[in-house]
């Protein structure tokens, strides 16, 4: 007897995530790669890699849902849903409602509120500019000539921080140059950048109940959680793989709506 599987592909503006779950909703395999400019190619590759990690060759019987910015570029998906719905679904796999989900993505931030039944009450997306997103940290790392993966350690080890006042990425860049000129320590600047991300999140919405943090930026920079904790009294938790919550949610929806599903 073959196992029933389902898949989810989250084509973000920055990275593409792919997940395969079994009929119990457990993650069997996943893959993350840069989306680049060819969303279709990225989703094909991510999916192929995930299939091989799970040891499956034929995709015929696997129902796949897509989500994310490039959700309509996934030719083999049978349906698509927005990343708002899918992130929520993914988080509900790990935590019960009510909750406030904070997703820090490559190019946008989202705040999604779920009630105790897990139903969505509200959502907000910020895509007006790069402020407070992964793109902001990338841009600043470039200016500071620092590899991205160093940021979290630097922010964590800092015993002080510089204050960045502006919420404009360009203005912040100028502020950072000023700080460098005036001799501020590199790790203090990086901590200041992290704090800037946290401030952008705080001004988006209120935070009710448990806060669940997701997204690639959190996966790679968990110190942001410690910083957010200094501002709000809520419990703050993260799922095991915060970056793939959207893809997981899509896979769980696919599992539920799989035409082969006779449950």
């Amino acid at each position: 007897m073959t196992r029933r599987l389902a898949g989810g592909i989250d084509v973000g503006s920055c990275t593409t995530k792919s997940v395969i779950v079994d009929d119990g909703g457990n993650i069997l395999g996943s893959h993350v790669l840069y989306s680049g400019t060819d969303f279709e190619g990225a989703s094909d590759t991510a999916w192929r890699e995930t299939l091989s990690s799970v040891g499956v060759s034929s995709t015929d019987s696997i129902c796949v849902f897509s989500t994310g910015y490039g959700r309509n570029s996934v030719s083999f998906a049978t349906n698509s849903l927005t990343e708002i719905s899918c992130h929520a679904r993914g988080c509900l796999r790990y935590f019960p409602g009510p909750m406030t989900i904070v997703d820090i993505g490559g190019q946008d931030n989202k705040i999604i509120k779920l009630d105790q039944k897990g139903l969505r009450v509200s959502f907000k997306m910020n895509r007006k500019c790069a402020a407070g997103t992964g793109a902001f940290l990338e841009e600043m790392a470039l200016r500071l000539r620092l590899p991205l993966e160093k940021l979290d350690d630097l922010a964590k080890q800092a015993d002080g921080e510089v204050t960045l006042g502006s919420y404009c990425t360009v203005f912040s860049g100028t502020e950072v140059l000023e700080k460098i000129k005036s001799g501020a320590a590199l790790d203090h600047i990086v901590r200041g950048l992290f704090h800037s991300v946290v401030k952008r999140i705080l001004e988006m919405d209120t935070f009710t109940d448990t806060v669940v943090m997701t997204g690639g930026v959190i996966e790679h920079n968990p110190f942001l959680i410690d910083l957010l904790k200094t501002h709000i009294p809520n419990d703050i938790v993260t799922p095991p793989h915060p970056q793939i919550m959207g893809a997981l949610g899509a896979a769980l929806y696919a599992l539920q709506e799989d035409p082969h599903n006779t449950d």
Partner: peptide, 13 residues
């Protein structure tokens, strides 16, 4: 794109 996604997500809600 932002508008489309917001509307779609709202209708999903």
């Amino acid at each position: 794109e932002q508008t489309r996604t917001n509307i779609e997500a709202f209708v999903e809600q």
